[in-house]
Design a protein around this nucleic acid. Sequence first.
RNA 1: GGACAGGUGGCCGAGUGGUUAAAGGCAGCAGACUGUAAAUCUGCCCGGUUUUCCGUACGCUGGUUCGAAUCCAGCCCUGUCCA
Length: 408
Amino acid sequence: MTAYKSELLRLLDTRGYIHQATDANALDALASKEVVPGYIGFDATAPSLHVGSLVQIMLLRRLQQSGHKPIVLMGGGTSKIGDPSFKDEARKMLTTDLIGENIASIKRIFERFLTFGDGPSDAVMLDNSEWLDALEYIPFLRDVGQHFSINRMLSFDSVKLRLDREQSLSFLEFNYMILQAYDFMELSRRTGCRLQMGGSDQWGNIVNGIELTRRMDSVEVFGVTTPLITTADGGKMGKTVSGAVWLHEDQLPSYDYWQFWRNTDDRDVGRFLRLFTDLPLDEIARLESLQGSEINAAKIALANAATAMCRGEEAALQAAETARRTFEEGAAGGDLPSINVTDTVSLIDALVALDFVVSKKEARRMIQGGGARVEGEVVSDENAVILRQTAAVKISAGKKKHGIISFS
RNA sequence: GGACAGGUGGCCGAGUGGUUAAAGGCAGCAGACUGUAAAUCUGCCCGGUUUUCCGUACGCUGGUUCGAAUCCAGCCCUGUCCA
């Protein structure tokens, strides 16, 4: 890699965000002399985002940190179609109302990571239904459609995958890449946007947008993709004991969010610190070099920083303190999941109520397998009950899931 | 519209009349070992239950049969080729 001149490219490069880039040197030159508005598109198919989108969010944050303007593009229009890229099946289509709600909810997440406003490098959020909804078919085909070659579109990996797997790809979905390319051009016209970023699976779509913009407007725009963030053992990032790792606190308690980062694989710690925290690089280098069980200190630093950014300083401190008390002292920390019952409950019901297991059957198996503990003591009687008492009782399922039952 | 192939548990994928809640793999969960890591080994892995008892399940709806994921009919969906 050549040394970049611009703050932006240096930052992205050293922190490991760049997988592919179109004409990096020209982008570097541009970024070192003017404010570059750059965008990333996000789905509006769910009311929240999970850590799978965090690299993208951080990428916009880095853009802003280096003095440029992040544009969050919500796919309100394209969500009505669904991106077929690398998906096995067509997505369900959503109603307009639902999409609107999702966008409002997602905005709250971005406010944690970006500064919105009217200044030159303040973030803005746009919705592509603004222009997509108004498109007229014939003019669109004539002006935009003529620039796309079916032969070429068929050669894209995203499409080939579906065809090779003998899965249907509807015309509707096939149009997705055209609309996404159109988005880039539209943003370039409306906001002077010069850069689109995205995950590596978006490369094809991004390149299409660059070409379309050049052909129609003779404007040079750029693309950068991030590497696919997988965990060291090859899995997709973003699963916890209880499902997806949501960024919204009403969908995932901050304690669980903290735990997610705390449980990072050794081999991922340095990479994640660079990508997902603002810690200085020399500090990261130090943490990363810790050996053996000392690496746990780095994981705690990662969890603290990542949680603080997404959930606030306070939530991070609380989660860290709960974890310390729970794991180091074996006590019951205050932030643990808890349920309140009025009378004696069976251990099985308690495990189910705490969401540690999804069914009573599973609770039984957990107990039989010796994975259930009450106040730290293994309970192997599956009919065990927890008597009503004044003090709260700590219930554990496995080594990591702990919860509290209190009586009222 | 026609011909052919296919639709099985979270995913992949066996199974062509009974002992099949359905091989095997992946993912997941628990135990051992550890460092709330990885790797490895062991167990579990549809639901309910007073535990070999009930319910539900192999695209959908009916039928044949003592008995069907397995046979028959119709329908729906997917793919390939032809029109």
